[in-house]
Amino acid sequence: LESERPALRAVIKVTLIKEPTGKPIVLEGLFVGGSAGKAEGKLMQYHPLSLCNNSEDDPPESDFITIVKLERTVTSCLPLLDKARMALAKGAQAVIFDISDDDHAAAELPDTDSLPRPVVLVEAEDAEELMGLVNKNEEARVVIEVKMESKWPFD
């Protein structure tokens, strides 16, 4: 049995498009399964219902990163893994799920290697910061990288 792989942490650097040289906001999240990797794009919110079989809309642009705030009260039309795949198939460079209000979400996402690009879970202050930008329609570019955990215990 493959030993349980530790979930890798993601570093999410957010730069406001109106302040391209400003200091990035640095947040953290958790990569889903084997999807850890680098991605970059413009932050774009998707409603949870937009990732269902019968939903279709025009993908915004080429390089965008999808953020979805999951809600407990939305009857899920698809398993979360399929929603992630659908978002990536719509052209997202990566998918960020805000799971602050959906405590079952993390359990729904098995340790899978079948995701072609990064899928990251965020919650609490990190999620609130991201969704705060969305709520104010503050256009932002996001860079997602793997967090390098320091090996040296005294760092």
Binding site: P48, L49, S55, K69, T75, V134
Partner: peptide, 27 residues
Amino acid sequence: CSDYNGCLSCKPRFFMHLERIGMKQIG
């Protein structure tokens, strides 16, 4: 509904429309 996603479900006979406003998408 929720502050971030707008409507999450509609009353009977209403239609759910997902509206994109810049980077936001609300129900």
